[in-house]
Computed example of a mutant assay.
Amino acid sequence: HPDTAARAIGAGLRALHDALPVDDCPFSWGVADRTARLSPDARARVGDVPAVDRLVVCHGDPCAPNTLLDDGGRWTAHVDLDALGVADRWADLAVASYSLEWNYGDGHEPAFFEGYGIAPDAGRIAFYRHLWDLG
């Protein structure tokens, strides 16, 4: 049930973003830190960074398989948190919604954004997907 999973992934990411204290997180997943790890060629192709919408503790690898669901299709946990760090929430939202296509096929992004409780932001999504692809 891809839409059920997409909605739960969105809800789980929202729970993570709302629960973890930004000021207590010693790690960064922000644009400056991520681009510093890119090759000079890739760094030159990053483009204009959008203004931060909301700083949160991001998962860092919010692809669909890194959210665990129970038998009823509800979010229960996150795994693979080695890239966790403070960043704009769109760094996670763009990649999590991107991964739905890889894992479930087209058409499930509306359920994801409904589960998170936000309307898609095309500009931020495009930027953070591009940054993901460069990395």
Rank of each mutant, 00 (worst) to 15 (best):
P120G: 07
D92Q: 02
A8E: 02
R54G: 07
H108Y: 13
S97K: 05
A94E: 03
V57I: 10
L84P: 02
P40H: 12
A77I: 01
H59D: 08
G85E: 09
E101Q: 15
G117Q: 12
A126G: 04
V95C: 06
L38Q: 03
R45S: 04
D71G: 14
L69H: 04
E114N: 09
G107Q: 04
A6S: 08
A119W: 09
G107D: 04
H108G: 05
A87V: 07
A36H: 07
L68H: 00
V56A: 00
R124D: 06
V52R: 09
D133E: 15
G117L: 10
L55D: 15
D33M: 10
R124E: 08
V52N: 06
D71T: 08
L100S: 09
N66G: 07
V95E: 01
R74D: 13
L38G: 05
D3L: 09
D61T: 06
A19I: 04
L13N: 00
P40C: 11
A122Y: 07
D133C: 13
D3Q: 10
V86H: 01
D33S: 10
A44T: 02
Y128W: 01
D61L: 07
I125P: 00
R129G: 08
T76E: 05
S28Q: 14
R124M: 15
D53K: 03
V95K: 00
R37H: 08
D106Y: 11
R54P: 02
A5C: 06
S28Y: 05
F127A: 01
A96W: 01
Y98G: 06
Y98R: 10
T67V: 13
P120A: 15
D33P: 03
R14Y: 05
C25V: 01
A6N: 02
D80P: 01
P110Y: 11
A44G: 14
W90N: 01
Y104H: 15
G10H: 06
